[in-house]
Amino acid sequence: MVENRPWLTLTRHILLWLGIAVISLPIWVALVAATHPTSAFVSGILPLWFGDQAVTNLVAVLSNDGGLGVSVSATRMLWNSFVMAMVIAVGKIVISMMSAYAIVYFRFPGRQLCFWLIFITLMLPVEVRILPTYEVVANLGLLNSYAGLTIPLIASATATFLFRQFFMSVPDSLLEAARIDGAGPIRFFKDILLPLSANNIAALFVILFIYGWNQYLWPLLITTDEQYYTIVMAIKRLMTSDNGLIPWNLIMTTTILAMLPPVIVVLAMQKLFVKGLIEQEK
């Protein structure tokens, strides 16, 4: 603090609280909505205080006794999301580390070409090649499978660049020392590079887990079998009801379930995640 200005300090706190209030408003309303019966949403205005149906709604959603617009239960969809997020996060980290290691620690013909091919993926998000990518996955018979949900999203230029950057900052003396001690490339990777990368891996994991969990367009395209629905993509399906009455209480219960895992990951690993996010963009 440069100088003391009580009014300015007060304004600061008020603005921050206003910001927090606006940011939190939808969550408050969602939490409240998840505790009421469906009949509370027929007319009038959204309830602002908690009801007593929280457990009933939660059980209804997790076991899906027919009130949800889909035939699959939220438990199953949470599992699908978890599998998708984990496979994408771990898969991306593994294959990016491998390719970054090859590009930094080896000189081989075609190295530059590999680098550029990986770089190009940065410019080709799924959204711009929706139809042809769908065709490839369909031709490989991967529709409605975990492989189809995850493998096409596993290639990652940003993760590769992050590890490349990091590996290049590792002092050469470490490699020389390891070599004198008789360590080969695999030993060096396993015993020296991997432990050194622990922080980077953890930070990247948070970001990639959220990325995988929150995928929308991709699961929407390649899952027609409800058994493979992820919870994030299914939320929209729930809003279509046959009798014209939208079951907001069940939708909000599902919505809260859908956002809880990534929010917990961010809050639990806040420091690491913020650092990782900022590093990634450098």
Binding site: I95, S99, L117, L124, V128, P132, T133, V136, V137, P152
Partner: peptide, 17 residues
């Protein structure tokens, strides 16, 4: 080491593009 990344890139990125 680069094969997995490269295969996925070629099959699911370069080819569809």
């Amino acid at each position: 080491l680069v094969a997995p990344q490269l295969i996925i890139t070629l099959v699911f990125f370069i080819w569809p593009a």
